[in-house]
């Protein structure tokens, strides 16, 4: 038991940026659903079982429009496709997590990935760390949704406006952290500058270019394809370098 509170005490601070963002966006979602006539049971169930912010917001209108399941499935796929990536990183870390593995995979959102992709602290059982982080994030999202669905306009949303920037800041801090690590590796001569900055620059450039070229509806899929191509070229080049 003491062990469990220890993990919780270590995991909670790490998830605070997600707490701020998920509670705020969850409230906004609960309020938006309520404004369109969906009661708390609807938004609660959706947040618990779908657990995907951008999709949940995007499906509010389709839920009230004409029934077109195939088009809707395609919309879901388009919005969710970026999650395909996250499993690739977590294949190995999640392979030894036993009974909680299905839940870890189900709850692998952008924000949870940004934390678990950094690995577990050395002194904590990995599956316990991953489970605690995942379940905390999930709880924030459901709690926010319930607050919005039940209290609605009683919450001073205007005062909280902008607090969801904490999630952008979280991603930005991780990019900065990784870039600084990479620069240290370059300065100590472990890696070339090109190798050190390859991933963040590839990710940033492909996403930015495809947003500018293709617009915000389909840019992520194209950026992901471009990223995979970039990685395979780099991989082939490293292989050649090793065998030569």
């Amino acid at each position: 038991m003491r062990d469990k509170t220890h993990v919780l005490r270590r995991a909670f601070p790490v998830t605070v940026p997600v707490l701020a963002g998920y509670i705020f966006l969850g409230i906004a979602y609960g309020i938006a659903m309520r404004a369109r006539g969906f009661g708390a049971l609807w938004s609660y169930s959706i947040s618990t079982f779908i657990y995907a912010g951008s999709l949940q917001f995007a499906m509010i209108e389709p839920l009230r429009s004409a029934f077109a399941p195939l088009t809707f499935a395609f919309l879901c796929l388009l919005i969710q496709a970026r999650h395909l990536f996250y499993g690739l990183t977590m294949l190995e870390p999640y392979s030894r997590t036993g009974a909680v593995r299905p839940y870890l995979i189900f709850s692998l959102t952008d924000e949870t990935y940004s934390i678990v992709c950094q690995g577990a602290p050395a002194d904590i059982l990995p599956e316990r760390w991953y489970l605690t982080v995942s379940a905390l994030d999930h709880a924030y999202w459901v709690l926010g949704t319930l607050l919005g669905a039940l209290l609605g306009s009683l919450i001073p949303m205007d005062l909280l406006r902008g607090i969801d920037f904490s999630m952008t800041a979280l991603f930005l801090v991780i990019v900065t952290e990784q870039t600084m690590d990479a620069l240290t590796a370059w300065r100590s001569g472990k890696e070339s500058l090109f190798d050190a900055l390859f991933s963040p620059v590839l990710g940033g450039l492909t996403t930015l270019l495809s947003l500018l070229l293709f617009g915000k509806d389909s840019f992520l899929l194209i950026a992901m394809a471009a990223m995979i191509m970039g990685f395979s070229v780099k991989y082939a080049q490293e292989r050649r370098g090793n065998s030569a």
Binding site: F171, V175, L220
Partner: peptide, 12 residues
Amino acid sequence: LPAAAMAMLVIY
């Protein structure tokens, strides 16, 4: 991937 995905998410 994490470094690339985080850069992607910032832009997203």
